[in-house]
């Protein structure tokens, strides 16, 4: 298992840089991963990240569409927060596995 250092803390990551142990996640780590993705996190980002982490912990499926129809945010807003590939970026920054919806 690869390790990566964020905010002075060493965390487990896979070869694509996704954290493999969600319990190691902190807001500081999120800020640093976001920086690598070119995103400056705001309160809006953080509340969405928390929301995604809760959904993931409950074993619910995470896709752009499921997040966009959850009532929390719409798809357009999701794209504005995490431009380009919102689900992949948000999952990476939220410290949860890359969504396995793509099969």
């Amino acid at each position: 298992m690869a390790q990566k250092n964020f905010a002075g803390i060493s965390v487990d990551v896979n070869d694509e840089g996704y954290m493999t142990n969600p319990s190691q996640w902190t807001k500081d780590i999120a800020r640093e991963i976001a920086k690598e993705e070119g995103i400056e996190l705001t309160e809006k980002h953080y509340s969405l990240l928390e929301f995604l982490r809760q959904k993931q912990a409950k074993g619910e499926s995470l896709t752009i569409r499921s997040v966009g129809t959850s009532g929390f945010i719409d798809i357009k807003g999701f794209y504005q927060l995490f431009p380009g590939a919102p689900m992949k970026k948000a999952a990476k920054i939220a410290g949860i596995p890359k969504p396995a919806s793509c099969v």
Binding site: T63, I64, S101, C102, V103
Partner: peptide, 8 residues
């Protein structure tokens, strides 16, 4: 349009 789809 989106995943999943039949027979990708």
């Amino acid at each position: 349009a989106d995943m999943p789809i039949k027979c990708p």
